[in-house]
């Protein structure tokens, strides 16, 4: 590769690959946003805002802290794996 791309080193060495990588980064961003909201958000920082929503003897924030966040984490990982395998296939970089 010529040295003139050195200012832009996060760019990939071939464009097809780079589109693949940015699709991956977009997906990761979205998933991490949900990850943050269900744990740090609903269960900790935003808990006072959700205090009016009662769930069996406590509130929604408590439910997210002790049950909900874990269930959402599971969904996030399986969603990511499923989407990512499709993206791998679409860009023809899958590991078959």
């Amino acid at each position: 590769m010529p040295d003139d791309i050195q200012k832009n080193t996060t760019e990939s060495s071939d464009t097809e690959n780079s589109a693949y990588w940015s699709a991956n980064i977009r997906l990761i961003r979205g998933c991490l946003f949900v990850w943050f909201i269900v744990s740090f958000g609903f269960a900790i920082i935003l808990r006072p805002l959700l205090a009016d929503i009662k769930v069996g003897g406590s509130d929604l924030g408590f439910w997210f802290a002790q049950q909900g966040s874990i269930l959402f984490f599971l969904v996030i990982i399986f969603f990511y794996s499923w989407r990512m395998n499709k993206i791998d296939h679409q860009f023809d970089v899958d590991d078959e």
């Binding site: 991490l32 966040s69 990982i77």
Partner: peptide, 21 residues
């Protein structure tokens, strides 16, 4: 009680980072 929910979230949420990153 609630204050120690950190253990629950911390020790499961890390798997999201592991799988994605």
């Amino acid at each position: 009680g609630y204050d120690n929910s950190t253990f629950l979230m911390g020790w499961t949420g890390g798997y999201v980072l592991l799988a994605l990153l």
